[in-house]
């Protein structure tokens, strides 16, 4: 019976990683689900849902030549997953400021305490080597309502971090 696996793959960014990996999986008869792929710190990273009758060993084999040729690191793991399960975020939070240790931990802990469930988080370190800045976009669900979240946002702000909270008002038509 075919079950979902999660492929985690990382390696120095170079052209062709996505095309070659997905072609190898297609040739092995695997079906692809949702994915997040992006460049982080000069590496290319893939998180990809793969559905196949093959075992993890067989899947490893099917991408092995690409993984070796492109000097990638990869692993498949069994996951409990299904498609068509999107949750709709109701709040977007942007945090930015001078990069310093603890900024992510502090911000996300305050958000957690306010009942905020993160669905999506993307962050970048930008600016210069001497004066890096940290920028984080989060989308999620304010399970305890927006008042609790606003208080958390105020607390995150106290360290000179800029925080912007915007409701996501989804229009369905």
């Amino acid at each position: 019976m075919s079950e979902w696996k999660m492929l985690t793959l990382v390696g120095q960014d170079k052209p062709g990683i996505v095309a070659k990996i997905t072609t190898a999986l297609f040739d092995a008869g695997a079906k692809l689900g949702e994915a997040s792929m992006m460049r982080l710190g000069g590496n290319f990273t893939i998180m990809l849902m793969v559905k196949s009758d093959q075992s993890i060993d067989q899947l490893d084999q099917s991408i092995d030549s690409v993984v070796k040729a492109m000097s990638l690191t990869s692993s498949f793991q069994n996951i409990e997953a299904s498609l068509h399960q999107h949750e709709i975020p109701d709040t977007r939070i942007t945090v930015y400021g001078a990069d310093r240790p603890g900024i992510v931990s502090k911000a996300t802990t305050h958000l957690l305490d306010a009942g905020f469930n993160i669905l999506d988080l993307e962050s970048d370190v930008a600016g210069s080597e001497a004066e890096p800045i940290y920028i984080m976009h989060i989308e999620g669900i304010a399970a305890h309502g927006s008042d609790a979240l606003e208080k958390a946002v105020e607390q995150i702000k106290t360290n000179g971090v800029n925080v912007d909270m915007t409701p996501i008002d989804v229009m369905i038509g």
Partner: peptide, 12 residues
């Protein structure tokens, strides 16, 4: 802004 559509289920 965020949109969804009755003709495109499960996506915004």
């Amino acid at each position: 802004g965020r949109e969804g559509c009755m003709s495109v289920p499960d996506y915004t």
